[in-house]
Design a protein around this nucleic acid. Sequence first.
DNA 1: CATGAATGAGTGTTCATTCAT
DNA 2: CATGAATGAACACTCATTCAT
Lengths: 190, 190, 190, 190
Amino acid sequence: MTVSGRVRTKGGRTRRRLLDAAAAEVARNGRAGASLSAIAAAAGLKAGSIYFHFESRERLIEAVLEEGLRATLERLDAALAAEGDHAPPAARLRAAIRAHAVAAHELRDYTVAVLAPDFPDGGTAGALRRDYVGRWAELVAEAQSTGHLPDSVDPRLVRDLLFGALNAVSLAGRPPAEAASAVYALLRLG
Amino acid sequence: MTVSGRVRTKGGRTRRRLLDAAAAEVARNGRAGASLSAIAAAAGLKAGSIYFHFESRERLIEAVLEEGLRATLERLDAALAAEGDHAPPAARLRAAIRAHAVAAHELRDYTVAVLAPDFPDGGTAGALRRDYVGRWAELVAEAQSTGHLPDSVDPRLVRDLLFGALNAVSLAGRPPAEAASAVYALLRLG
Amino acid sequence: MTVSGRVRTKGGRTRRRLLDAAAAEVARNGRAGASLSAIAAAAGLKAGSIYFHFESRERLIEAVLEEGLRATLERLDAALAAEGDHAPPAARLRAAIRAHAVAAHELRDYTVAVLAPDFPDGGTAGALRRDYVGRWAELVAEAQSTGHLPDSVDPRLVRDLLFGALNAVSLAGRPPAEAASAVYALLRLG
Amino acid sequence: MTVSGRVRTKGGRTRRRLLDAAAAEVARNGRAGASLSAIAAAAGLKAGSIYFHFESRERLIEAVLEEGLRATLERLDAALAAEGDHAPPAARLRAAIRAHAVAAHELRDYTVAVLAPDFPDGGTAGALRRDYVGRWAELVAEAQSTGHLPDSVDPRLVRDLLFGALNAVSLAGRPPAEAASAVYALLRLG
DNA sequence: CATGAATGAGTGTTCATTCAT
DNA sequence: CATGAATGAACACTCATTCAT
């Protein structure tokens, strides 16, 4: 499972293989349980060779988080763009829900990494995360302002409930389309 | 943070301290990342002494899962009993939602442990878990049968979305009452 | 497997059970590999209780060696006494060979302990051992003086060859009588 | 004390040092008592580094047994070859006795390891051992068939008595030539 | 770019020993 | 007499990291 994009150089391809292997390891064994030797083996390398591509274990995992978030953001952007800038808030929220579910499913390993409770607030990954959750809070607020969602609730709380719900079932292996339409139905979104 | 109950013997008290410490460690560092030395230190022991109380690291963590699930089940039972056997399905579901949110919040460390993706299907903990999720699926199905929830959706999917939503925000530190009422509002549960 | 003797007191019986269990453990796992908890369990006690009967692990094992040697010496004495003080040297040596083989077989666990390469020279056990091997050197020398064994060889070397041969096969499980007569035959002892 | 052969690579030399150190440790403290830290220290490494060269403690010790047996077998082959294919059985047995005594003495640590009562029947080492003892049984049977040894005794029993005798005195430090000629004399082989 | 070899700090676990009960 | 509870040192083993090759 890879995140996107083409790479020309050999080093770039190895880097990509390492990221994928690391995402899988973190998904399977948790951030603390992910072993560099296992990652290296899965990428066809010896452990020491990782250090040619990443400064440290910490940086490798950070890079996984960044890649995962960047790809998820791209998908959100693409989905909203496809909907059109002036689409009604409910449609935009539906598109976002579907995009999130699909991303959580397709980038599963990367997503699990992002969910780790010890996610670092700082660094590029933290910034990307803040970006993503900020965008979502806006989408929810818009939908509340048009009455599609109850406006008695803090939009960030709604967003977090949605993330929790979508992530949990997407990672459990359910088809993302099913998860998304279940959410539409429960929220009477549409 | 402890799970409940009084213990008379010295060994029993140490065991309880170990369970609490282990729950906290697992919550903080994940199942794979939880270290026995850290757990022992938090419980005021040396690492080796754990083995007087638990056969192995694995058994200690299993015991944490069991305690957490047992306490959560007790709370669900109590909440439903308080509602009365013949309460309407919507009220019963609301009570369950509130109980789950409160439990997830108050037993936070134990709950996080239960959420670990590598939760063991077998053993006592697995059985307790199956019990709990089974009960919830029934509650959802009842609420669907009376029209309080859309019946186009697999009740187990609804249940998992609810768990995901409630766990995520409860563990993030939000007051559980707030999370519960947000869910009532979003689901138009009254 | 016990070494001999009757004991009246309860403490004495526990001590005996501990010695037997220790002999078995040492025989099975080697001196270094013998675990006090295993010994205690085999004797129906908890590890800590051993210290009521023996000062330390070291002393317990030493006591095993002493018991084994004492019993082996008793058997040698009895066999020679049965032969009569004035029996011919060849008959005395044959009796000693048979007694040693039988002892090695019947006291197998204790014998194995005595054979451990890290046998302590000092202490009571060392003295008993020196006694036993000294007696044997004399028996061999007598047999050489009457021409029953080649007298070109250091009697202590002969003794050690005999010990090595008899111990090895007795411990391997062969019936001791068979081992003894094989040795008679090979040495043309009659 | 090393077993034979030259090695070019650095890793190969470290491996050899580890084998020698392990043989010595096993000889001194028994199979169960041999500690990896001690072995590593004797080989000039830290304990963890052993795992670059051997999969586990078990495999390291197994390798010691294999090396010891392989070297002992080579010496037996060489001794018999030097005697010539058509040498009389008594001469062949004498050569074998001398070769075994010399091997037990020169490869002392490895030999002691091979003698450990918990020798594993399976694996390469077990096969080598069966090979060696099988060859010896044949040598004894030949000598019996020509009347050089009493033929009333099971040749495997004779072989085990010889092993026991030779091993015991060789390991005790006696010059192997002396042990071998003592055995010739006692068996009237000479 | 990548590996072979090593390290030092960490892991979970066992064990002899102590001592209050 | 014996156990329950704890310790501290050892154990085998893993791992992130380094660096010469």
